[in-house]
Simulated scan of single mutants.
Amino acid sequence: MPSLYDYRLFISHAWKYGDDYNRLISLLNNAPYFNYYNYSAPKEKPLFPYGTPMTNSKIRELISNKIRPSQITIVFAGMYAAYSDWIKYEIDESVRMNKPILAIQPWGQQRFPSYVTQNADKIVGWNTSSIVFAIRELAR
């Protein structure tokens, strides 16, 4: 059997709301016939090692370096995204770099931040096949 294609994903997230991120990683890891490389910064491997000084310009640079090699940016369309300057920066950088944006609707949420919906190329619910299909469709 030929090897599967590895999709290069940048998953935007806020550690305060890490359950959505962890659930998505689990979903993608268990998706049949789907391989990916995760360019986001997991909690176990943060952008900055402990004790390293963080400046906004350095954080922006490191986030941009994570987005650059990805094919697609995935954003959770939770209302917390409306209040995160870093998630907005990740969306802006993805748009600037011409990366398609996939938004995932949180369970049971009726309202979505307009900034996410205005910039998303596609919005899907929490369904493995919908998410994987959208990634395959949007990835270049």
Rank of each mutant, 00 (worst) to 15 (best):
S26I: 05
S94W: 00
A120C: 11
P53F: 01
L24F: 00
L47T: 01
L102R: 00
T73R: 07
L4Q: 11
P113T: 06
L102T: 01
S70F: 13
L28S: 06
N22F: 08
Y115I: 15
R8C: 11
L4V: 08
N127P: 14
R136L: 13
I101H: 02
S94L: 00
P113L: 05
I63K: 00
E61N: 04
P53A: 05
I63W: 01
S84N: 08
I25W: 02
L102S: 03
R111G: 09
L28I: 09
P49M: 09
V132W: 13
Y5E: 12
P69D: 12
K58I: 06
S114H: 14
E61A: 06
M79W: 13
P2W: 08
Y50I: 02
N56L: 10
H13A: 03
D19W: 08
Q71P: 09
F112R: 14
Y115L: 13
S114C: 11
S129E: 13
S3W: 12
S26M: 07
N30I: 03
L28E: 02
E90I: 03
K43I: 01
W15L: 11
Y89R: 09
L62G: 01
W15I: 06
S26R: 10
W86I: 06
Y83G: 08
I123P: 10
I67F: 04
N65W: 06
L28Y: 04
W107F: 12
I131L: 05
Q109W: 10
S3Q: 14
N119Y: 11
Y33G: 04
R60K: 12
D19L: 11
M54N: 00
P106G: 05
Y50G: 00
I72M: 12
K43W: 01
I59D: 01
T128G: 07
P32E: 03
M54T: 02
K122I: 11
F76L: 07
I131Q: 02
N127I: 15
K58Q: 07
D6Q: 15
Y17P: 06
Y17S: 08
G125S: 14
E44T: 04
G51P: 00
F76H: 06
